[in-house]
Design a protein around this nucleic acid. Structure first.
Length: 425
DNA sequence: TCTGGGGTCCTAGGACCC
DNA sequence: TCTGGGGTCCTAGGACCC
């Protein structure tokens, strides 16, 4: 008989971006708060109070503006460097509770709690929660179960419970809890699968758990059957405790206002390319292929245009200057006059460690070394003196296409001026 | 007027080989 | 007129995640 003894906790930060903003602005703790995506486009984080006002996740900001104004909702533009920094603090704290941790996203992590006794799990979850709150100020919810999918489900329920912790190990409530979870809310079941399941009379997590294996295997992908198995308590997704390096690196942005000129597109592609190149250099990687893409707004059906161009790099590289050169060649291939462009981006792919770097016949050895030193100098300067202290002229200085950011808290955790002030009398 | 960004994995089908 | 069979590798596109 298959029996899984593993105990996995999913720790998930509540309304993470909102909680980060609240750290530096306690006056908004009880108020409805939302955080917007890049360009102030969509709602990507909502406080409980904002959820209660029926502001939906992912909704375009202009559609909820009325609710926002009427209810005095506090609005923030994204501040990703802040969220990244707080995230690192949370994860560092979590590691103390289990060295076997998989950082799953900026605001959640799976922990292996197999070494904790069953009867102590709930209390242990509580302790994790309290410590994270005390040390970082971030509220969390914790779901504990035998598989990742079940711990996700437990977490989903924990979000709604006062205690913030739900433990399904040895629980007699599992089936009851799964009955209360809509099929579309199951981890791994997206839009398409939901539609398919509902068509076949499967409406809850509990029903999916009880569907016969053969039917699942015949009608869905391995993905589908893994999810169903995990609901039964049989682990199919193991904990990935060491972080793999990324395989692709994409940097893209929508424009603050529509762009028509090649010159502006060149500036933005150059800027994105420099960012992407810096990212892969930091990870010690080089790219084999580069893709540039541009498109008009997909919501504007008339005169829509989207295109992408791949370039196989003659030599795998992370050299900004070489990458920009190739990116601009790619851009010229796909640029067409007469369109109002909404977004542009670049993808570096086929990433590999720099030491796998194989010089081929076309590489000029001396030049490579000089360039590599130059890149190191650029990265060092930009880390020390701030982003874009050193750039190349093609990236432009005016950047009139640059993104909108009207509601930024401008908090920078690397800057003393933003430290909260505590007055002691 | 205004609709994010960055990832991963799976699969089908084509290219290629013997 | 008749046009194999089986295997691997690669990639684009779809689906999913946060």
């Amino acid at each position: 008989m298959l029996y899984s003894k593993s105990k996995i906790a999913l720790v998930d930060c509540n309304s993470f971006y909102v909680s980060c903003e609240r750290l530096f602005n306690p006056s908004i703790i009880k108020r409805p708060v939302i955080v917007l995506s890049s360009n102030d486009g969509c709602v990507i984080s909502r406080s409980t109070e904002a959820k209660a006002l029926d502001i939906k996740m992912g909704e375009p900001y202009f559609k909820v503006k009325k609710i926002v104004e009427k209810n005095n909702v506090k609005v923030f533009s994204t501040n990703f460097s802040l969220y990244g920094d707080i995230s690192r603090r949370v994860m560092k704290t979590l590691k103390q509770f289990s060295p076997q941790i998989e950082i799953y996203s900026i605001d959640e992590a799976f922990l292996n709690l197999t070494s904790i006794k069953d009867e102590d799990l709930f209390e242990y979850g509580n302790k994790i929660r309290k410590t994270i709150l005390k040390w970082t100020g971030i509220p969390t919810s914790i779901g504990i179960a035998a598989t990742k999918t079940l711990s996700k489900a437990a977490n989903y329920i924990a979000k709604k419970e006062e205690s913030g912790v739900v433990n399904l190990i040895n629980s007699k409530q599992i089936d009851k809890i799964l009955s209360g979870i809509k099929i579309s809310d199951v981890w791994g079941v997206g839009r398409q699968l939901s539609k398919f399941y509902i068509k076949n009379g499967i409406n809850t997590a509990y029903q999916l758990k009880n569907v016969h294996n053969n039917w699942i295997k015949k009608n869905t992908s391995v993905f589908g059957s893994r999810t169903a198995m995990e609901l039964k308590g049989i682990s199919c997704n193991s904990l990935e405790t060491h972080q793999e390096k990324r395989k692709n690196c994409c940097v893209s942005r929508s424009f603050g206002k529509k762009v028509t000129e090649l010159e502006d597109l060149k500036e933005s592609i150059t800027t994105h390319c420099l960012n992407a190149a810096e990212k892969i250099r930091i990870d010690g990687q080089t790219a084999k292929k580069l893709t540039v893409f541009i498109r008009t707004s997909p919501f504007q059906k008339d005169n829509y245009y989207a295109n992408a161009k791949d370039i196989d790099l003659p030599v795998r590289t992370n050299d900004s200057i070489e990458l920009v050169k190739q990116a601009l060649i790619a851009l010229k291939y796909i640029y067409k006059k007469g369109y109002k462009y909404q977004k542009a981006g670049i993808i570096l792919s086929g990433l590999n460690d720099t030491d796998v770097y194989k010089k081929n016949l076309f590489s000029l050895i001396n030049n490579d070394e000089k360039r590599s030193k130059l890149m190191k100098a650029i990265d060092y300067t930009n880390i020390k003196y701030g982003r874009f202290s050193l750039s190349i002229a093609q990236a432009g200085l005016k950047k009139k296409w640059n993104i909108k950011k009207s509601y930024s808290s401008k908090i920078d955790t690397a800057c003393f001026n933003f430290l909260p002030i505590i007055r002691v009398h």
